[in-house]
Each structure stands twice: as C-alpha cells, then as structure tokens.
Computed example of a mutant assay.
Amino acid sequence: MTRNDANPDDDLARHAQKMAKKKAARDRMMENKTGEKGLVIVHTGPGKGKSSSGFGMIMRCIAHGMPSAVVQFIKGAWDTGERRLLTTHFEDLCQFHAMGEGFTWETQDKSRDIAAAQAGWAKAQDLIRDPKIRMVLLDEINIAFRYGYLDVAEVLAFLADEKPPMTHVVLTGRGAPEALVEAADLVTEMTQVKHPFRAGIKAQAGVEF
C-alpha cells in the first residue's frame, strides 16, 4: 500500500497518538514550573522590533489592569504612535516619561545627552521602587550604556538591591552590555534579515513609530 492509499482514519489515529505524547511531555515539564518573580528582560540585537516588543508587553499589563510605566532614554523627541496611545487612552494605568532629546547625533551635545540619560535613570529608579507599578520599560537604555551616559554596573546593582520582587523591568536597545545579558532573566536578540531602509524606504508611521 502506498502513502496515497493509506487509510485516512489511520493517519488521524497516528496524529492523535503523537499529539497525546507531546501533551504528556509538556504536562510533565510544566509540573515544576509554578514559581513567579519579577523578571529583568532584555531586548537587543541589530534587528527591528526591540521597542515594539517592549511596548507589546506594556499593553499586556494594561489589559490585565497592571500599572506600568515607560521611560524613553533616546527617542523622547519623537511623536510616536505608542506615545500617543498610552498618554491619551491609558494615562491612568501607564506613566510615560520621554527623557531623551533625540539620538545623540541629532543633539550633537554630549553633556546634554548625559544629563538627559541621568535624569531618565533617576525617574526610572523612582518608578521601579514603587511596588504598585508592575512593569517598567526602559526604552533604548542600552544606547545610553553604549555611549557611556549610564553605568551598567550601577543599574544592575540597583536592580539587584532595590527592585521589588514582583516588578518586571524591560531594557531595550541594540548592543546590550554583556554584564546585563548575564544578569537578565530573559534575553531576546533581534536579528536583521532584510530592512526596507536599505532599499531607500524611509521610516514610516505605523511601522517604525
């Protein structure tokens, strides 16, 4: 009997048996996964989607009625869709603080960039210390690390010593320092396969901002 002549009922039975085995294995794996904790989450890498993923998590928190907050370290001068949405519709559940003045090559003033990053970190510490806030998104903070505007060791020490046990902190931006990657609970690296910018397409509303 060829594959084409096989009894469809046999195929369905084999599939059901295979899925039953997968479910049993999954159930065994989940038996011991009962713990909960506030996570340190890193979205990094050269690909697109790091901030978008972080804002997706913020929207999940809002959907669950969990207070949250955003601190933007670099793109504070941008009028982004996520900023409009959060500040106009969800101000009661999500604080939004745009601390940066744009990318460093736009300001061309290192002292101003450092001051903005330090102010952003001071605000972030206040938000993280508040146990009522369940998630804090530190958007593009990795860029501040890369340019030396913030000390990653200082940030990690604060997270280890002062972050409430059930607070999630999300840190985004390419080039996450190795020390941050090692200390984090969840790290995702976005890879770039294709990008329209290379074909002369500019950043567009609804896609990039």
Rank of each mutant, 00 (worst) to 15 (best):
V40P: 01
E91L: 03
G49R: 04
D79I: 09
W78R: 13
N32Q: 13
G38Y: 01
F73Q: 08
K75P: 15
T34R: 02
P67N: 02
F90R: 05
A77N: 15
I62T: 04
K75A: 04
G81T: 02
M59A: 10
K37A: 14
G45C: 08
K33C: 11
A69T: 02
A77W: 06
K50V: 02
F96A: 10
T44D: 12
Q72Y: 01
F55L: 10
G49L: 02
D79G: 08
Q108R: 15
K37Y: 09
D109Y: 08
Q72C: 05
V42I: 15
I58Y: 08
A98F: 09
G35P: 00
G47S: 08
R84L: 06
E82Q: 14
T87N: 09
S68F: 12
E31L: 01
D79M: 10
H97D: 13
N32G: 04
F73N: 11
L39H: 10
W105D: 12
G102W: 09
G65T: 03
R60C: 01
I62V: 14
K110N: 10
R112Q: 03
A98Q: 14
I114A: 08
L39R: 14
D113I: 01
A98E: 10
Q95E: 15
K75Q: 12
G102V: 07
M59L: 11
V70G: 11
S111C: 07
L85Q: 12
K75H: 12
S53W: 00
G100W: 05
Q108N: 15
D79T: 12
V71M: 00
T104K: 14
L39K: 14
E106R: 11
G65P: 15
E106L: 14
D113A: 01
T107P: 00
S53G: 14
R83N: 07
M99S: 13
G81L: 00
S51Y: 10
K48P: 00
A63K: 09
S53Q: 02
I114G: 06
K33M: 06
K110T: 12
E82G: 14
G38L: 04
G56L: 03
E31P: 00
D79W: 04
G76H: 12
I74T: 04
G56I: 05
T87S: 13
D92M: 04
I41S: 05
G54L: 04
P67K: 03
L93K: 09
F90M: 07
T107W: 05
F103V: 07
E82I: 04
G76Y: 06
F90H: 15
V71H: 01
D92S: 12
E101T: 05
S111T: 15
V70S: 08
H89Q: 13
F103G: 14
D113E: 01
T87H: 10
P67I: 01
A63R: 10
K75T: 08
S111Y: 03
T44I: 03
M59T: 07
E36N: 07
T87F: 08
D92L: 03
Q95T: 12
L86C: 06
I74K: 00
A63F: 02
G56M: 07
H97M: 09
A98K: 12
D109T: 05
G102Q: 12
M59V: 02
G35V: 03
L39T: 05
E106V: 14
T104I: 09
R112I: 11
M99P: 04
H89R: 14
G81N: 01
M66S: 11
G38F: 04
I62D: 13
D79N: 13
H97F: 15
R84K: 09
A98H: 10
